[in-house]
């Protein structure tokens, strides 16, 4: 039996020690916004925050999350930065299929929490672990900048 603090609430779960947090969230608690993509920390779809830091929940055994503050996409909107990031994502229309986007938003939020005005290199470093098969990278970059500066940047380059 473990007690997990998820999005500000303490939750008890009765799961095996080695069960990755991803499956505790999805299959036990029904928090489905955190996605499964690879199961080996290669795609970032499962990104959540552990004490504010972006981690891959697919390779994080539940024991590693006990006693830490877990934030998932379901709770990120309650933070200032998270909300800004989500709004930028909406404004720029980043999502295509959308499957990777919750993970992208979690990584982006962790980045902005650490670096309020990230450079291109900072964005590269923080976001390149999150794959997007639909290829939304250009808009992800634009959305992070918008969230950082508050300045609306248009996605269109259409002539």
């Amino acid at each position: 039996m473990f007690v997990l603090s998820i999005n500000g609430n303490d939750t008890q779960v009765d799961v095996p020690d080695d069960m990755p947090l991803l499956w505790v969230l999805r299959d036990v608690l029904g928090l489905n916004g955190t996605k499964f993509g690879c199961g080996m920390a290669q795609c970032g779809a499962c990104t959540v925050h552990l004490d504010g830091r972006a981690v891959r929940s697919c390779v994080l055994p539940v024991t590693g999350a006990v006693g830490k503050k877990i934030t998932t996409i379901e709770g990120i909107g309650a933070t200032d930065i998270g909300k800004r990031v989500q709004q930028a994502w909406l404004g720029i229309e980043v999502a295509q299929c959308g499957y990777c986007q919750t993970g992208q938003i979690m990584s982006a939020t962790a980045l902005l929490a650490e670096k309020a005005q990230p450079t291109d290199a900072d964005i590269d470093a923080a976001m390149s672990g999150n794959l997007c098969r639909c290829g939304t990278y250009a808009r992800i970059r634009a959305a992070i900048k918008q969230a950082a500066t508050g300045q609306i940047s248009l996605p269109q380059t259409v002539a």
Partner: peptide
């Protein structure tokens, strides 16, 4: 017109269910 997509909000807050999210 560059209209907003109808499916974006749920993809940004994680509420939109994909096939894999069915319970």
């Amino acid at each position: 017109k560059p209209l907003r997509r109808v499916d974006t909000p749920g993809k940004v807050d994680g509420s939109l269910p994909f096939g894999i999210d069915i319970r």
